[in-house]
């Protein structure tokens, strides 16, 4: 079967965040774009499934500005994905999860994909909306916050658990489906150096901006408009509790939590 895994370029976790000149978005100057963390888990999960289901191939798909998208696609290939599709973000197209879903829908609607894997959210805008929106566009089931995704060879079925309030829901998934990963079984693997070198030369299928523009035209009216991007006021450092005994530390802390911070249950 064919598995698609959605990979999003996001600013590296160590990026120093600051607003752009207009104050409405992140200043992209000097930002290093890397594969989003949960998406890396999705790639790992896709590769684990590929290893356990004979005849499975994995295609990574990314939507975004061409250079960024291709960089994370090459990373996905270095990790072990078989093929990659880059869906080019048209200039001026808004960064919005519904628009992203529509663009990815274009790439997926042309293929017979049994399973679409993605991270439960990306570490930049953290909306978590692309997976479910895409599933609705495709008219298929979607399983969020998934862990322990397994292929049951005996019954040819995908089983998984969903990490919800208070525990895990065991689910037998109906395919085709979108599965948004909370965690793969393993920590994401590290790409081997020779595979990184090979990935640089791998062919990447491209969906040009011209094609994408018409696919996103209808949802573009729904896209949120960015008004402001702000950094929280810097934390000034902790107020230190002075004490002479552990009991005194406890009493003082509880009093502060109750009277000053007002968070004592």
């Amino acid at each position: 079967m064919e598995i698609a895994v959605l990979v999003k370029p996001v600013p590296d976790a160590e990026t120093r965040l600051r607003p752009d000149a207009g104050g409405s978005g992140l200043d992209p100057e000097g930002v290093k774009w890397v594969l989003a963390g949960y998406d890396e888990s999705a790639v790992e999960q896709a590769l684990l499934l590929k290893e356990s289901i004979p005849g499975t191939s994995v295609r990574a798909i990314s939507y975004g500005p061409l250079a960024r998208a291709e960089e994370v696609l090459r990373f996905a290939i270095a990790l072990g994905c078989d093929a990659a599709t880059s869906v080019e973000q048209p200039a001026g197209a808004p960064d919005d999860p519904l628009v992203t879903a529509a663009a990815l829908h274009l790439a997926l609607s042309k293929r017979a994909v049994a399973l679409v894997l993605c991270g439960k959210q990306a570490g930049d805008d953290e909306t978590g909306l692309v997976g479910p929106a895409l599933a609705e566009m495709l008219g298929i089931a979607e399983y969020g916050v998934a862990v322990n995704v397994r292929w049951d060879a005996a019954s040819s079925a995908l089983t998984l658990q969903q990490s919800v309030e208070g525990g895990l829901v065991r689910v037998r998934a109906s395919l085709p489906a979108v599965v948004a990963l909370q965690q793969a079984w393993n920590d994401p693997r590290t790409a081997k150096l020779p595979n990184i070198l090979k990935s640089r030369k791998a062919a990447i299928e491209r969906m040009p901006a011209s094609e994408v523009s018409s696919a996103i035209a209808t949802v573009q009216a729904l896209a949120a408009r960015r008004l402001a991007f702000r950094l929280p006021p810097p934390r000034t450092g902790a107020k230190m509790i002075e004490y002479k005994s552990p009991e005194e530390a406890a009493e003082r802390l509880v009093r502060i939590l109750r009277e000053e911070a007002k968070v004592f249950p």
Partner: peptide
């Protein structure tokens, strides 16, 4: 909730609404 967010994504498409979580 975790599942509530997923509902938002599907609903935005189905109901043609702008969306946020």
């Amino acid at each position: 909730t975790a599942r509530g967010r997923d509902v938002v994504g599907r609903l935005a498409v189905r109901w043609a609404a702008s969306a946020a979580t």
